[in-house]
Nucleic acid binder design. Structure first.
Lengths: 188, 188
DNA sequence: AAATTATCGCACTGATCGTTGCGTTAGTGG
DNA sequence: CCACTAACGCAACGATCAGTGCGATAATTT
């Protein structure tokens, strides 16, 4: 058989270290400026030797990307309320309350600055969730919405407010966003 | 008279240094990763001693903020086409072509990561411009739009696409964005 | 249970960052 | 033209970062 050259070993200790490092990143990002997020600082907070971070992640950008992907994947259950509007409203309200958390927002902003230009770990899973909701509506016999267009009009205003402005994006506002978006689709 | 304690001196040399540093930041941000943007690196590219940067700006965050504010203020002329839809379409198309530039986008992303949470130098002037367009429509006798709401539905999808996704936001797409937004207002 | 080896801790080193004191250059006002 | 001083260049210094070799620990397989 063709054996893999490097055999991964995600056993107890590695998982513990990984969890401690992720928690340390979240804590430091919540209380300090993003500038001070260096690998030695994270290591000191996590109670881990700095060498481990240099070996496993290499740079703060890759570490932030890892933290963001594991933080923003499978964090929201896609609801099934029976109707498209209900599904979208519950889901977008959950997204709104999620990004309203200062810690989550700090992680998003840091990931934007460090991540690769184009495509951010913060929104990949959101698009998947939105696609699942739309696909279910299609299976119900409803209209076939475009995922990208829906993301533009639903996630666009929400993330814009969260990232660029200082105003909070409440769950109620997210629900009205869904209503006006669906109304626009009916009239056109 | 009450004299100012520190007398500013924006003469030829300071302006030259400032311009060279700003240009160096733009160049490094366009070709390197945002991680490598340190004050010594900027100083070397600008042909200026690092001490000058430490004294005048202090940190990369403040330098980026300074570059962003001078880059995104008074960069777009607010058009006057006679109608609200024409004004918005021309203005948002200009904004779209602006953020479609990779260098501009890199500066935006770096500023988001380094800037203070809430309120970004990238959008402050955009809101002023949008407010001017809306105010002019009011003086014509037209409807009184809410600036924040208009920013949500116009700048929101545009900036969301630019920052979070890899897809380009074309000027044509920006124009259709304005049309659908105004159509939504008429039906409601 | 023993062997294998991925992973981590430790000590050490070179490189770069951030800061300070001091002399020089060059705008600004008299 | 001359005095004044803001702004810059220079050199030196700690502090911290980034990386490497080696031994110890513990997860995994036989």
């Amino acid at each position: 058989m063709a054996e893999s050259s490097t055999q991964v070993r995600p056993g107890g200790r590695s998982a513990k270290v990984r969890a401690a490092v992720h928690r340390a990143v979240a804590e430091l990002l919540a209380e300090e400026e993003a500038e001070t997020l260096t690998l030695p600082a994270v290591a000191a907070r996590a109670g881990v030797h700095p060498t481990t971070l240099y070996r496993r992640w290499g740079s703060t950008a890759q570490l932030l990307n890892d933290v963001a992907t594991s933080r923003f994947t499978d964090d929201l259950v896609v609801p099934d309320s029976g109707s498209l509007e209900g599904d979208l409203q519950r889901w977008l309200a959950d997204v709104a309350t999620d990004v309203a958390d200062p810690d989550t927002l700090a992680l998003m902003r840091a990931t934007i600055g460090s991540g690769p230009a184009g495509g951010c770990a913060c929104v990949e899973d959101r698009h998947r969730q939105l696609g699942a909701i739309i696909r279910r509506e299609q299976e119900r016999g409803g209209a076939a919405l475009d995922v990208e267009s829906a993301a533009d009009f639903l996630l666009g205003p929400l993330y814009y407010r969260a990232v660029f402005t200082a105003e909070p994006a409440s769950a109620d506002w997210a629900r009205t966003l869904v209503s006006t978006y669906l109304a626009t689709l009916r009239t056109s």
